[in-house]
């Protein structure tokens, strides 16, 4: 099976591997200690999985806003996103 047409690059491979690893880790975490819905600063009662989704989606938008509005390196946006993910997962 020839998959050359998928045009893989190292960064995207790392990106998707990370996503898969996060999903596996979240599943294991859920099995070990099931989580209860709770309400943080996000105006919804959310589970851990909901917060992960919110965090990832808003991180995508942080990156887009950074690219659209500033000429600086994308890595700074990446740093912000990491911090934001932690905030959402912990207090969201």
């Amino acid at each position: 099976m020839n998959l050359e047409w998928m045009a893989w690059t190292l960064p995207t491979a790392i990106f998707f591997t990370t996503i898969v690893c996060i999903l596996i880790a979240m599943t294991i975490w859920q099995v070990i200690s099931p989580c209860i819905k709770r309400r943080g600063f996000i105006p919804l009662s959310t589970t851990r999985g909901d917060r992960l989704f919110i965090g990832l989606l808003s991180s995508a938008y942080i990156h887009l806003a950074w690219l659209g509005l500033t000429p600086f390196s994308i890595w700074i946006a990446f740093g912000f996103s990491l911090a934001w993910m932690v905030v959402v997962m912990r207090w969201g």
């Binding site: 599943t27 099995v31 589970t47 999985g49």
Partner: peptide
């Protein structure tokens, strides 16, 4: 079940 609402969406 685990991931039900995420899966649904």
């Amino acid at each position: 079940f685990i991931g039900d609402s995420q899966m649904f969406f």
